[in-house]
Design a protein around this nucleic acid. Structure first.
Length: 916
DNA sequence: ATTGCGCCCTA
DNA sequence: GTAGGGCGCAATG
């Protein structure tokens, strides 16, 4: 048995992944070098492991030499539709070879073979000699090669991939993987596979029959008719695919194995390369005298004092002694993570079932208070009385010396507040992640745990089941409940330890501390307050809509010459364009005729009466299903009010969003719609007050782009769209003002001649001319857009006036479309996001200011992006209006002084509609 | 039971 | 052209 260990680096695969994962660095010469830098550090780490116990004794970098290979001779379409590599990656390919040579490491490429095949040839040869082999790649095709003595290394996650990984990911052995890959095909490489068969089905088929030929032989016994036919029809495609994914492993080796031996790295060529690229930090390491590849003391432990997630260290607290012990320890450490378990995902309908608490990584407990038996086998478990636990927690959770950390803490705040428990001071890991990494990922616990802790949390489904069989948490037996709940608190604490220190380092402190962190409590109170809806009125509207819908349905069916499902765009399209023979085109990729408003308006204008009827039907159906029916179902039986849930960490720009129900999209534009808004009413003896920022985003654009004419117009209270019309067209009338308004909005959305043309109904040339004229009259706008796009290209993110970041990884996307979309987002995000920051600051301040003014009846109920809705006693309307107006108008201060005033319009009434 | 699509409501 | 959520339909599992 040899002690040799061959590392084969899949160079091409690596740089593609590095390009998309790493920041867009440029080298000393201003050339793109992100992938080169990533490759260099990766190679450095590998080479540096020479002489370590499992490190490489031999190493080579394998690259693709040419695009035409034996697979093209087999199947001309192979890789035919692969998009060209990104333009700023192409120049980095040759530099990868330079980098490899700088390390004095062999770089192997052979015409007619793909890197994968060369790797396969070397791997087989080395295994035959009794060597160990590591393939540095995470390419699924290469996983076919895994066997005892050979595994793969994913350097991005520093993770070894062996047979268990293949089993986990594909459900089969590495030896069977080629058959699975053949069945599923590969869209990127244009391996056909079998239509209708994806990874799941392919894996199941191979698991059941053992191999591809057995699957094809048994095809006619397969139950699902679609799948059976597809396998029969495409058996040859499957066999061809099998050959395409097979790796060629018997070609002669371009360089003998022994020549791949890894020795110390001569420093001179490496230094020259690093200097040339301007990789200073790496250069320092060389000049410090550290010679790569020489034995080195083991590196400082990467992470941490933290234990793995060992659930047996979690305690289920069922005695007073244990409860007091945990509370004493929690008080002593002063920083704890908490989580509540309930019987409902809606925090306003949820009853507290238990509370978990982590006081150190790995050290957590679960305190059950509301568990019941399953109703059949198990008894109600022994637990501490609810009030005993709540009394003790009430003190701890309000203790100003103990920081409470939660993940999506708003949920817990609402549930606990309803149980009479306040939580302060508090941090929220979801919000921390949002303020640090908006645009990079979602901020749910599962994602954060995976990314930051490389750990998969116990899934709720695995504890409570799914679908019909799902049980509520109060029926989960205590041992499982403890594992799940305590782990959540444990994870939250560990996440906080990683995220919180990044705030200051990444300049996110201001947004977190002054805006989002205090907002959590404010929004929790808004959700708890809810808003009253007039159920009887909604019910009347539902009935009224129902009869009108029925009438319209009859008329539509008559016009169509027979019944069909009007709500089915597919059927409607077929009726209009096939049966009735109207002209119009297929649009969607699914081959369905477009029947949206623009299309139906067009038909109506051309004298098709049915189009108008369908539009009316659509409007009423929408209003009924989405609003009048749905809202009645959302009335909370306990409070008689509707309690939305505001999401604080969903929108990429910093806005809130609203769900269950969404109260940020209640109709207002049409007469019918306004009747729904009128069903939102004040409680008996109170009134609603709606306070809107007037044109806040345009004002912010005028400030941020520094446009003197627009600033002056806002200062004077002039009509902004008329001003724009005057500047662009030299005269103001209905038509020019309308166009100017459209263009003003287009600017906020990151203008494109294509989009503007679509909106204005002109051609692109004319739209572009208007944009040019706009830039000519308002040069600040052009500069703002150019600077913003330059910033996002450079840094990968844009910021609001208050420092909130939106990351836009799409700016380095593969296609021009993706990159242009990111540019528009980059232009819009600072404006939309600054507006979001401002109204959030107002929300945080308004409560205390009202309190200070002695106004005790005012409750904030809703936020709709530029509007706040309050409910209050009529006696306080005047005083409250003044406070609210001042707070909203001054919300940017003192952090930011705007060069335009912020206008606030206030109205009051018995209903939301009347308050506008 | 879940998922993708087309459509439409808001700022 | 920006940012959201939700409905019904139809095709999947």
């Amino acid at each position: 048995m040899s002690n040799n260990h061959l590392y084969l680096v899949d160079g091409s695969g690596y740089i593609f992944r590095a390009y998309h994962r790493l920041p867009p660095l440029t080298n000393r010469k201003g050339e793109p070098a992100g992938a080169v830098y990533g490759f260099t550090t990766m190679l450095w780490r590998l080479v540096d492991e020479l002489h370590t116990s499992d490190g490489p004794t031999h190493l080579a970098v394998i690259l693709d030499a040419s695009s035409h290979t034996f697979r093209n001779d087999m199947y001309a379409e192979y890789k035919a539709h692969r998009p060209p590599p990104p333009e700023d990656l192409v120049p980095q390919f040759p530099v990868i070879r330079e980098a490899t040579r700088a390390f004095s490491v062999p770089c192997i490429e052979t015409v007619g073979l793909e890197a994968d095949d060369i790797i396969a040839c070397y791997a087989k040869a080395a295994l035959a000699e009794g060597w160990k082999v590591t393939i540095v790649s995470s390419d699924k095709d290469l996983m076919q090669l895994i066997e005892p003595g050979l595994d793969m290394l994913d350097t991005m996650n520093n993770r070894r991939l062996g047979a268990e990984y293949v089993q986990e990911k594909f459900g089969v052995t590495p030896g069977q993987l080629g058959d699975v890959l053949a069945l599923m095909g590969d869209a990127v490489d244009n391996v056909p596979g079998v239509p209708g068969v994806g990874p799941k089905t392919a894996s199941l088929l191979i698991q059941e029959h053992g191999n591809l030929e057995a699957v094809l032989a048994a095809a006619d016994t397969i139950k699902k008719p679609k799948l059976r036919q597809s396998l029969i029809d495409h058996a040859d495609a499957a066999r061809l695919s099998r050959e395409l994914v097979r790796l060629a492993c018997h070609h002669p080796l371009p360089e003998p194995l022994e020549d791949l031996a890894l020795k110390g790295i001569p420093p001179a060529p490496l230094r020259a390369f690093l200097e040339d690229q301007g990789f200073k930090s790496l250069l320092l390491k060389v000049t410090d005298g550290h010679v790569i590849g020489e034995p080195v003391p083991p590196p400082a432990p990467v992470a941490t004092d933290e234990p793995a997630f060992v659930h047996k260290d979690y305690e289920c607290v069922v005695t007073e002694e244990a409860l007091d012990r945990w509370i004493a320890e929690a008080t002593a450490v002063g920083t704890i993570a908490i989580d509540t378990e309930t019987d409902h995902i809606d925090s306003m309908r949820a009853t507290l079932v238990g509370v978990s608490m982590a006081i150190a990584p790995g050290k957590a407990c679960y305190i059950p208070i509301g568990h019941v038996g399953d109703g059949l086998l198990s008894e109600v478990p022994t637990q501490l009385p609810r009030e005993v636990v709540l009394d003790r927690l009430r003190r701890l959770f309000a203790d100003p010396a103990v920081l409470k950390i939660g993940q999506n803490l708003k949920y817990d705040l609402v549930v606990l507040r309803r149980a009479g428990v306040d939580v302060t001071p508090a941090d929220d890991t979801m919000i921390l992640s949002y303020d640090l990494d908006a645009g990079l990922r979602n901020h749910g616990m599962d994602d954060l745990c995976k990314v930051h802790l490389s750990h998969d949390t116990i899934s709720f489904k695995s504890i409570c089941g799914t679908g019909k069989a799902q049980i509520t948490f109060d029926k989960v037996p205590l041992p499982q409940a403890t594992e799940y709940a305590a782990e959540d608190a444990d994870v939250t604490l560990r996440l906080w330890r990683r995220l919180k220190p990044r705030l200051a380092a990444e300049a996110a402190t201001q947004v977190y501390e002054t805006v989002d962190r205090p907002l959590v409590t404010v929004v929790a109170e808004m959700e708890r307050a809810g808003i009253k809806v007039d159920r009887a009125e909604l019910s009347r509207l539902s009935a009224e809509f129902a009869t009108q819908i029925a009438v319209l349905e009859g008329q539509v069916h008559e016009a169509a010459g027979g019944p069909f499902t009007i709500g089915s765009p597919k059927q409607l399209g077929e009726v209009l364009f096939d049966r009735m023979g109207l002209k119009g085109g297929r649009k969607g990729k699914s081959g369905v005729y477009s029947t949206d408003v623009t299309e139906l308006e067009r038909l109506a204008a051309e004298g098709v009466p049915m189009a108008r009827l369908v539009l009316e039907w659509r409007q009423l159906s929408k209003l009924k299903s989405t609003y009048t029916d749905a809202l009645q179902a959302q009335i909370n039986p306990e409070t008689g009010r509707v309690h939305t849930s505001f999401s604080l960490a969903v929108a990429q720009t910093g806005r809130l969003s609203s769900t269950d129900p969404n109260l940020q999209n209640i109709p207002i534009r049409t007469e019918m719609g306004r009747r729904i808004r009128d069903a939102f009413v004040a409680e008996e003896g109170k009134v609603l007050l709606a306070a809107d920022y007037s044109q806040i985003e345009l004002r912010l654009a005028a400030h941020m782009a520094d446009v003197p004419q627009l600033r002056a117009a806002f200062a004077n209270g002039d009509d902004i769209h008329s001003l724009t019309a005057q500047e662009l067209f030299g005269e103001v009338n209905r038509d020019t003002r309308g166009k100017a308004k459209t263009i003003n909005f287009a600017i906020l959305y990151g203008i494109s001649s294509f989009g503007l043309a679509g909106r204005l109904g002109t051609d692109r040339i004319e739209a572009q001319a208007m944009i040019d004229r706009y830039f000519d009259r308002f040069p600040g706008v052009k500069t703002y857009m150019a600077d913003t796009i330059a910033q996002v290209r450079d840094k990968g993110y844009v910021t609001t006036l208050f420092g909130r970041k939106t990351h836009l990884p799409g700016i380095r996307g593969k296609t021009v479309g993706e990159r242009q979309s990111a540019e528009r987002q980059a232009v819009n995000a600072p404006i939309q996001g600054t507006s979001a920051d401002i109204i959030k600051r107002a929300m945080v301040r308004v409560g205390p200011q009202l309190e200070l003014a002695g106004l005790r009846t005012v409750r904030m109920l809703l936020q709709v992006h530029d509007e706040l809705v309050f409910e209050l006693d009529p006696s306080e309307v005047d005083a409250a209006s003044a406070v609210i107006r001042d707070v909203m108008a001054g919300a940017a201060e003192p952090a930011v002084t705007l060069s335009v005033p912020l206008g606030v319009e206030i109205g009051t009434g018995k209903s939301w509609g009347a308050a506008h």
